[in-house]
Design a protein around this nucleic acid. Structure first.
Lengths: 198, 198
DNA sequence: CAGCGCATGTAAGATGTTACATGATTCA
DNA sequence: TGAATCATGTAACATCTTACATGCGCTG
C-alpha cells in the first residue's frame, strides 16, 4: 500500500474518536464529513483487516451482541502512525467539479439548458446550507467542552462558507448568462421594439 | 467503458475548442482549468485511441511538422455525443479536502502544527488568487467577442470566489485556534499575570 | 411474517497516477 | 553539445465504486 493511502488514515482517524466497527466508521463519516469525504464499504472492510495485520488496530468480536459485530480499537502504534500523518502538511487537492467543467464548455449548449443546470446546482447547495446551519447549533450543544469542538466547528464553518459562496456564484452566473439571451434577443417578439439607449 | 467516464468527455470537450494532439489536450487543461480538473497522459493517450475507435474523433498525423504529432478532430458523431453529455445535469461532486480532513482530527496534534498547516493552506490559496486575477484581465482581452468568453469568465469567477473564501476561512480558523492556546495558557510565564477582564 | 435497519464482506471492473522508455527539435 | 521542451506511449500499480451475496434482529 502506497504512502498516500488516505482511506487508510481516514479510518485510523475515525478510531481515534472511539472504537468502531466497519459499519460504524461508515455511519460516522456519513454523519459528519460526508460533504467533503466519503469511504465505501469496499474500502473500509479490507482496510480494517490490513490495519489489523499491520498491528495498527485491534479487532474484537463484540459478543454482548447477537449480531456478529467486529469492533476495532486503535493500538499505541496506530495512534503514533495517525499523528505522524496528521503532522505532515496536507497536500493540495485537485478536486473535480463537474458543474464547472460543463459550464466551461457550455457554448456547445442552448443557454436554457445551462441555466437549468445552474438552478439545480444552486438549489442543492442552498439545501446543504440549511443542513449545515442546523448541525452547527446541534454540535455546540452536544460537544460542549470537548477538545474536538473547535476543530469540528472550523470544518463545518468551511462547509457553510463553501455553500454560501456557491449560492452567490450561481446567482451571479445565472444573471450573467441570462444577460446573454437578452443580448441575443434584445426584445421579446411579443413586445414591440421601442427606443433603447445604446 | 462506463457511462460516467468523465475523462472521456473532458477530452472530447477539449476537441470542441479546436483540433488537438494528446500533448495539446494536456497543455490546454493545465493552462485553463487545472485548478479543478486535470488529466494525466496515462489517461489522455489511451482515451484518444478509444475515441477514435468509436468514431467520435479522427486522428491524423501532422506531416507539416517533423515531430510526429497526431492531431485529433471531433467528428459530427463526437460533437453530438459531447452535447448529449453536456445537457445531462451535472452530478454532485464529493471532493476530498485533505486540509479539512486533517483539521477535523486535529485534537490529536499540537496546536502549533495545525496552525502551520493552515498558514501554508492560506498562502497557497492567496497565491492562486493572484494568478486568477491576472488571468481574468488577460482572458477579457484575448477572448473579446468570443461566445466562450462569458463561460470562461464564469468558471474563473468561481475559482476567484473559492480562493477568496478559503483565505477568509483560514484567517478565521487560525484566529480561533490561536484562541485555544490563549485559553490553555492565559498568560505567558515571562509576563506577570495582571488583571484581565472576564 | 414481511420489511427495514444492522452488519460483514467479496469480486469485478472502472478509474487514475507514476514511473519509465523513447526520440526529435530548439536554443543557448 | 547539452539541456529544455516537444511529443507519444506503456506497464504497473493504486485506488475506488458498484453490484452482489448473506444473514440476524427488531418492529409493525
Amino acid at each position: 500500500m502506497g504512502r498516500h493511502n488516505r482511506s487508510r488514515y481516514t479510518i485510523l482517524a475515525c478510531l481515534s474518536v472511539r472504537p468502531m466497527s466497519g459499519y460504524d466508521v461508515k455511519q460516522f463519516l456519513d454523519g459528519t464529513i460526508a460533504h467533503f469525504w466519503n469511504e465505501s464499504y469496499g474500502q473500509i472492510y479490507p482496510t480494517l483487516k490490513a490495519l489489523a495485520a499491520a498491528g495498527l488496530v485491534e479487532g474484537r468480536d463484540d459478543e454482548g451482541d447477537g449480531r456478529g459485530r467486529r469492533v476495532y480499537t486503535l493500538t499505541p502504534a496506530g495512534l503514533a502512525e495517525l499523528r505522524r500523518w496528521l503532522a505532515e502538511p496536507p497536500e493540495p487537492d485537485v478536486p473535480r467539479y463537474e458543474m464547472s467543467l460543463k459550464l466551461f464548455f457550455s457554448d456547445q449548449l442552448p443557454v436554457e439548458t445551462t441555466l437549468e443546470h445552474l438552478r439545480g446546482h444552486r438549489a442543492r447547495h442552498a439545501a446543504m446550507l440549511d443542513g449545515y446551519r442546523a448541525r452547527e447549533a446541534e454540535l455546540r450543544a452536544r460537544l460542549a467542552g470537548s477538545p474536538r469542538l473547535p476543530y469540528w466547528l472550523a470544518v463545518l464553518g468551511g462547509g457553510i462558507r463553501y455553500a454560501e459562496m456557491v449560492v452567490e456564484w450561481c446567482d451571479a452566473t445565472i444573471a450573467s448568462i441570462e444577460g446573454l439571451v437578452a443580448d441575443a434577443y434584445p426584445a421579446p417578439p411579443s413586445a414591440p421594439v421601442t427606443d433603447r439607449p445604446a
